[in-house]
Design a protein around this nucleic acid. Sequence first.
DNA 1: GCAAAAGTGTTTAATATACACCCATGA
DNA 2: TCATGGGTGTATATTAAACACTTTTGC
Lengths: 231, 231
Amino acid sequence: MKIDYTYKYPRPAISVDNVMLGYADGALKILLVHRTNEPYSGKWALPGGFLHEGESLSECSVRILKEKTGLENPFMEQLYTFGAPDRDPREHIISVTYFVLINHFPVVENNAEKVDQVAWFPWSELPDVAFDHAAIIRVAIDRIRAKIRYSPLAFELLPEKFTLSQLQTLFEVILHQTLDRRNFRKKLLSMNILQELNETTTKKVGKPAVLYAFDKKKYDTMLQQQIYFEL
Amino acid sequence: MKIDYTYKYPRPAISVDNVMLGYADGALKILLVHRTNEPYSGKWALPGGFLHEGESLSECSVRILKEKTGLENPFMEQLYTFGAPDRDPREHIISVTYFVLINHFPVVENNAEKVDQVAWFPWSELPDVAFDHAAIIRVAIDRIRAKIRYSPLAFELLPEKFTLSQLQTLFEVILHQTLDRRNFRKKLLSMNILQELNETTTKKVGKPAVLYAFDKKKYDTMLQQQIYFEL
DNA sequence: GCAAAAGTGTTTAATATACACCCATGA
DNA sequence: TCATGGGTGTATATTAAACACTTTTGC
């Protein structure tokens, strides 16, 4: 049952939109949903929705994430709040955006029912997107570019076990520059935040690579000593 | 004339709150207003207000700034958006917060009329503040601490002409550590972003100090060459 | 002439950069 | 055995850190 809510002053609506970034096939990818309603019907857009009653902003972001992907505990942080009055043709809608890093790709099936079609797009081949979502995505990419240098974000985009080469390639893709393999390994290993596993990859080709895992305990110890991650 | 606005779903209200930081007498200070209305009547709070119809978030922040201080063009950036449903006892109010740096202290007189009493408080001697404003201030201070290291924020807090000692003391206050005078001067001067003026301070005591000004053109050139400010 | 703050260089340690060959595996 | 990607060390350059005395001014 719906009741009506009446206010003396006009109120903008509040939506939360997630920029969900994943890394696969050597590219950063962004999850978009295909709109089937107006406005911008037929265009792709960031997964988002309106804030529910009694819900906090981060709860809303988590809910949207779960609805679209089924994921529950990825890395999330608030990105920015967009509030230009004309950013939505319907009315003034404030969008609080979140930045989500995903380290494995959920089975994004068109799981029946009313769920919108969702798809991952490489950041270099984004379709035209609805609203001001292109600007939002730009802010997200700027954020990850800057922050991956001084924060252990990279590990949020890789599977739990990864090789140093995979880690290096991820940095190279995001920073858009090549890095020296020996210097990269020296630096990362000297930080003492990686746990070397007794496992190697089994590849079709080339020498098997040792697998590592990010060691959060070591990382926290490092922070307490006021030593900071920095590439 | 007020008309009523009716929505099918409840809508949180949206306010904008400014954390305005200034530097004087060797301390970072924060501008607070004294509340005379409920809730939290009698407590101090961040200057803020509700978003007007057709107004963007940054316009709202600028308007509030002008109302409280008369200032028009200080450095401003969005800080964070706070949206816990219980952060305001009246109802769900989302607060989009802005971070404002002020390099000279406006005459903050109780300029008649209905204007609330405003005052600058040193960050180490803040009174009990209303709502979740203590948390907001903490985020602002974390932001300036982190950002002053890699962004030329410090110049936004000093007058146009300043001495290297003043600049150094400002860094020391914000970072809460002492810096070596010779190394500090070497580093700042080698960045080539300061313009040496043909003026010196006239003090009661000690050797007069050469005045410098931040040279934004040189700084922009530096950025284009992908060289970044870093203390 | 003295108190107070400004200004100035050098030595050493730490960190960053550049660079090329051998190794282990699967086909 | 060869193609492929993994793994390793050293020399040099750059940057950071530590440190103490002289200068200029007002009183």
